[in-house]
Design a protein around this nucleic acid. Structure first.
Lengths: 188, 188
DNA sequence: CCATTAACGCAAAATATTAGCATTAACGGA
DNA sequence: TCCGTTAATGCTAATATTTTGCGTTAATGG
């Protein structure tokens, strides 16, 4: 499901959406990125360009939509027995994914969207993970900081490094961020 | 100075650059943003569109270049006598600037650039401020964390909120970030 | 002052985008 | 199931944009 919430969920719209997303993924794998264009994607998907323009607006929005759908968290993050461990395990996998070339490209596409709500969506994906991990910690009777504290102390520097200074987005730093955030959970 | 480093610094190039930047600023103030186009900017600046395409590539890159030039730090941040005070004072002004409509637009433009080096440039602007504030603290014999710690503990959540959750980019939170970062400066 | 060449202007060609109107098919109720 | 309504698409023509080739200008370095 994309962010396009006001459309008919029925057969045809869904098929077009699926075909267009698939076309983008196929072309990304076979063509140099700068050669991707709306008319080319439309031809590959078997739809007319005007359909894409009407539904997505322009190429940047379409690319952001596709990238966001790839970013969406799939399953539950692994349970390691402690909050610190869960954060480290999930974070390492996230760093790997987003530090890779396709991951960086996806981040790029999402940030290039003119629509701030798409970035907010990205925020909420990460937030929902933190909510899940905190709930798990509470189930174990483990004390845990507020979700906002985790966002500022861990998600923020991680994302910031990935976007602005990818070389600085390392596992060692992740460990430091987790330690500092869980060690001083007194923020309010 | 733009990121275009390989060009002749002499009269004509500089004049074109100045005229184009000025045209963008003028149009931003008078026209709805979605009506800005390369041909329009070119006409306003009195140059041909191909000149803009050749020098900047496309509209997104041009806008990012103009926005980045506005973001560049101008003077020294105010000296309040303590590192915490300096961080708070500078941060509040930064939050005001980037939280405003033009500031959000500028951030948007910079992030929309396909060129990661422009984002890295944005990173270095903030870093240079932190370097200056830490040096000042040392001059006062005040202890201060590493610059990287300030980047992760203060700049990162501030920027993250501004980009993903502007409503959460508040002065109160800034105070919390500064307290947590200076209170536990033990990260390495 | 001259030679070299980066940057620009101009105009034609190629592409991409928008807009109007006809058609299809999803949805909801009888 | 069938029918009316309307969102979504297809098609085509009209616009707008971006690219390209080539001649010209002017900055740079002797």
């Amino acid at each position: 499901m994309t962010e396009n919430t006001g459309l008919r969920p029925g057969g045809r719209s869904a098929r077009v959406q699926q075909a267009v997303h698939q076309a983008v993924k196929t072309l990304e794998a076979t063509e140099p990125r700068e050669s991707l264009s709306v008319p080319l994607i439309a031809a590959t998907a078997g739809v007319t360009p005007s359909t894409i323009y009407r539904r997505w607006g322009d190429l940047a929005e379409l690319m952001a939509d596709v990238s966001l759908s790839r970013l969406r968290p799939e399953g539950e993050p692994p349970d390691t027995g402690t909050l610190a461990g869960d954060l480290q395990a999930w974070g390492e996998q996230y760093l790997d994914e987003m530090g890779s070339a396709p991951g960086q490209q996806a981040l790029n596409d999402i940030m290039a969207s003119a629509d701030p709500s798409r970035r907010a969506c990205c925020y909420r994906y990460n937030e929902s993970i933190m909510v899940a991990l905190v709930a798990r910690a509470h189930d174990r009777q483990e004390s845990a900081p507020e979700v906002a504290t985790l966002m500022d102390g861990i998600i923020a520097p991680m994302t910031y490094r990935l976007l602005y200074d990818p070389a600085g987005a390392t596992r060692d730093r992740l460990t430091i961020w987790i330690g500092a955030t869980l060690g001083a959970p007194a923020s309010r």
